[in-house]
């Protein structure tokens, strides 16, 4: 079948789509129902055209070999690449509704709650976590909270430290929240409040480098969204083990909505909370009792 308007004439059959979907599910955990056929066809045709492949077979061979990081390009075409504040809000809700209560049962009053956003890109996620805690957690003033944002991309980290964002990045925040935590710089540009900006540490981190990751330890919650699915099998295992070492026993790791740790590593346990499915490092009292 040739889909007009989906790029150059590339024949994509139902069997081709099935083959692609099986591969994607096995490789990334992303699953598409049959009613997504048109959505898949469009993006697949776009990627085939972009790579200059003459057929689905050629493209699929390129994808399987992950030549030119094609898996990343294809997955990006299926996912929302734009980063913005309060993205995947259900996990933030889960943090304040469920995770913190459980973590605090194991913490002394003077112990710091440590949260890590990796990769943090240009900073939207760690700032979102800070704002969410201050807006939605009644006990926020009772505890010391340390938030670290890390990324392998140093130019992204520089932008994170500057904390300047356009209106689209703030689209999910209410006007009141924007007024409380941002300063207008110019039309359509806002900068995070200096106090908030200075309270978050931004650092370079490479998830697959054990020596680099050794400096990150004792986190209670790690937000690690939409990066592991891009790694090859070996890197994914190494990254999962590095993340395991970064967490305290009983600590939680939040992955992207299209990722499942069961496809990434058996190291973590699945916890189902009302707002989200979260993965947990075993070893806390809670787990011992189960």
């Amino acid at each position: 079948m040739t889909r007009p308007g989906a790029g150059p004439s590339v024949a994509i059959s139902q069997q081709d789509v099935r083959r692609l979907c099986e591969f994607l599910y096995r490789r990334t955990g992303m699953s598409f129902a049959d009613n997504k056929r048109y959505y898949i066809d469009r993006r697949l045709a776009e990627r085939i055209a972009a790579t200059g492949c003459g057929s689905f077979a050629d493209y699929f061979a390129m994808l399987r070999a992950d030549a030119e990081h094609e898996i990343e390009h294809l997955v990006n075409s299926f996912t929302v690449n734009e980063t913005y504040f309060d993205r995947e809000e259900h996990q933030l809700r889960c943090m304040t509704a469920s995770l913190l209560d459980e973590l605090l049962t194991r913490k002394g009053p003077d112990e710091t709650l440590r949260i890590w956003s990796v990769p943090c890109s240009t900073g939207e996620e760690p700032y979102s976590i800070a704002i969410w805690l201050m807006e939605h957690w009644r006990d926020v003033d009772k505890y010391n909270i340390e938030i670290v944002g890390s990324d392998i991309d140093t130019s992204a980290l520089q932008k994170a430290e500057q904390g300047i964002y356009g209106e689209r990045a703030l689209m999910r925040l209410t006007r009141d929240v924007v007024a409380r935590y941002f300063k207008p710089l110019s039309p359509g540009k806002y900068q995070i409040d200096p106090g908030l900006r200075e309270s978050i540490r931004f650092t370079h981190a490479n998830l697959v480098d054990a020596a680099d990751m050794a400096q990150y330890r004792d986190f209670d919650i790690v937000f690690c969204r939409n990066v592991l699915i891009y790694f090859d099998d070996a890197s994914r295992r190494i990254a999962a083990e590095n993340l395991y070492d970064c967490l305290r026993p009983g600590g939680f790791i939040c992955l992207g909505h299209s990722e499942t740790m069961s496809r990434i590593s058996p190291l973590f346990r699945i916890r189902r909370f009302p707002d989200a499915i979260i993965y947990q490092k075993p070893g806390a009292d809670h787990d011992e009792q189960q």
Binding site: M134, N144, E146, S199, A214
Partner: peptide
């Protein structure tokens, strides 16, 4: 502000 920042790696 309940948020604290550590510029060293004391917790590592």
């Amino acid at each position: 502000m309940p948020l604290i920042r550590r510029d060293d790696n004391k917790t590592a």
